[in-house]
Simulated assay, not measured.
Amino acid sequence: MFKYAQIDLNTGFCVGVSYLSGEVKAAHMLPLTEGQDVQPGDIFMDGEWTRPASSSSVGKKRWWEKFRK
């Protein structure tokens, strides 16, 4: 099995994680190791994954607002 993160190429936002039966060569599909705990909502930027802080904090901007144009 091959594990991939599907990302939005404009934002680096992970929109899904998939286990596939074959290898995929596509810019929006990033291969993951079994040990990588990437989840939808994580962000791939400058070669690294980050998990945004919870958006439930009152008075703080929601994490996705920085990606809006």
Rank of each mutant, 00 (worst) to 15 (best):
M1T: 10
R62P: 04
K66P: 02
D8V: 08
N10P: 01
D8C: 06
F44G: 03
V15T: 12
K61A: 10
A26V: 08
D46I: 00
K66T: 07
W49K: 01
L30K: 02
G59C: 03
F2R: 09
N10K: 10
S57P: 00
L9K: 05
P31D: 04
G22S: 13
G41A: 02
N10C: 00
G16M: 01
D37K: 07
S56A: 14
T33F: 03
V17Y: 07
T11C: 01
K66W: 00
K61F: 10
A26T: 00
M1Y: 00
S18R: 09
Q39E: 12
Q36Y: 10
L32T: 08
A5W: 03
S54P: 11
M29C: 11
L32V: 09
T50A: 11
T11D: 02
G41S: 04
V17T: 10
T50F: 11
S54C: 13
P52S: 05
Q39N: 11
N10E: 14
G35A: 15
M29E: 10
W49R: 02
E65P: 01
V17N: 07
S57V: 13
G35V: 04
W63Q: 01
Q39D: 07
M29R: 12
K3V: 14
G35H: 09
G47Y: 07
H28F: 11
I7E: 01
K69S: 12
E34C: 07
P52G: 06
E65D: 09
E23F: 15
E65C: 06
M1H: 05
R68S: 13
K66S: 09
G12P: 04
V38E: 03
Q6Y: 01
K3Q: 12
P52A: 05
P52N: 01
F67V: 06
E34I: 13
W63I: 05
F44E: 01
S56M: 14
V38G: 04
Y19Q: 13
T11G: 02
G22Q: 15
S54T: 15
P31H: 07
M29H: 13
A26Y: 03
P31W: 02
D8S: 00
A27G: 10
W64A: 06
Q39W: 03
T33M: 11
W49F: 07
A53L: 12
M1P: 10
S57I: 11
Q36H: 12
Y4E: 07
